[in-house]
């Protein structure tokens, strides 16, 4: 017997969601595209004019934009491998048999960093990494490290907070992947070898790949739009040491009020994100 769902029912269920997505996602995107093709400065609205691709040309030839992009990818390239390595370690530990209560508590505590508002993480960072009174220098034996005012240290601090906040997410996703491994397959593998690496590589990894791909896509997108934490912690400084691409776009759009240029930057960022997501899916994603 075939259950046929009428078009009306389908539209009734899907229509609101599609309409909602169009309103909150596609309409602003189209508006951003329109803005990016115009000279559009909030403080000079009388001068709005169509300028074609000039904003895009300005962005593509602007060294400051590419420096910010390079900085963002450097953050991604340093923080993400750390998150994956630590997250995988935590997931494998939690996947071990026994100690059920402790593992449940550990899982719950993993949620806390993720549940902390980004902006609050930045404010906490300001206090904890204060050179004179911060707990971090106290933990380092009363060290006198200038975290916020030194370009390299400030960058390291951002990496630290990003890893702190998002390693649990990676751990939970990978743990979910590990639970997908059929028990009898894993048990059989353990009878064949005592090497955890062989089991990980040949038995568990195929089940981790879909989650890992999701982690790569989500964390890449998150890093490219990382804003709140850095804004409250360093505001992109000192100098431009922590001015990542999202902070730059916000600065251009909402502090210099050049919405046209900022929109062009945002569109280029979106294109880069889509390309990366496609690459991740093509290279890493495999159905088990």
């Amino acid at each position: 017997m075939q259950n046929k769902v009428s078009r009306g029912t389908l539209l009734g269920f899907l229509g609101p969601a599609v309409l909602g997505l169009a309103l909150v996602g596609i309409a602003p995107l189209l508006y951003a595209l329109w803005t990016s093709l115009h000279f559009f400065n909030l403080t000079k609205l009388k001068k709005i004019e169509f300028i074609g691709l000039e904003n895009y040309w300005t962005v593509l030839t602007d060294g400051v934009f590419w420096q910010a992009m390079g900085r963002t990818f450097f953050l991604l390239g340093t923080a993400l491998p750390l998150q994956i390595a630590l997250g995988l370690g935590i997931a494998l530990l939690l996947h071990q048999p026994g100690l059920t209560l402790l593992k449940t508590l550990a899982r719950l505590s993993l949620v806390l960093p993720m549940a902390t508002t980004y902006a609050v993480v930045g404010l906490l960072g300001q206090v904890m990494f204060n050179q004179k009174f911060g707990v971090m220098n106290q933990l380092l034996g009363g060290a006198d490290i200038n975290w916020i005012g030194d370009p390299q240290n400030a960058f390291a601090m951002i990496i630290f907070w990003d890893v702190w906040q998002w390693t649990p997410f990676v751990a939970l996703v990978l743990l979910a992947g590990l639970t997908m491994v059929p028990g009898e397959v894993e048990e059989a593998a353990r009878l064949e070898t005592k090497s955890w690496w062989v089991i990980l590589r040949h038995v568990q990894l195929p089940f981790l790949l879909p989650g890992l791909t999701a982690v790569l896509i989500l964390r890449t997108a998150d890093t490219l739009k990382l804003f709140d934490m850095v804004f409250t912690l360093t505001r992109g400084g000192p100098g431009a040491a922590t001015e990542f691409i999202s902070l730059m776009i916000q600065r251009v759009g909402f502090r210099a009020f050049d919405q046209g240029l900022a929109s062009a930057q945002a569109v280029i960022l979106l294109i880069i994100t889509i390309i990366l997501a496609r690459i991740y899916i093509r290279v890493f994603y495999k159905e088990v």
Partner: peptide, 22 residues
Amino acid sequence: FAEWPEITEIVQEWGTKMMLGE
């Protein structure tokens, strides 16, 4: 003048870079 919001962003960036010796 009306252009100060744009100019101050430039001064802020490069003024800080001067101080950092960059």
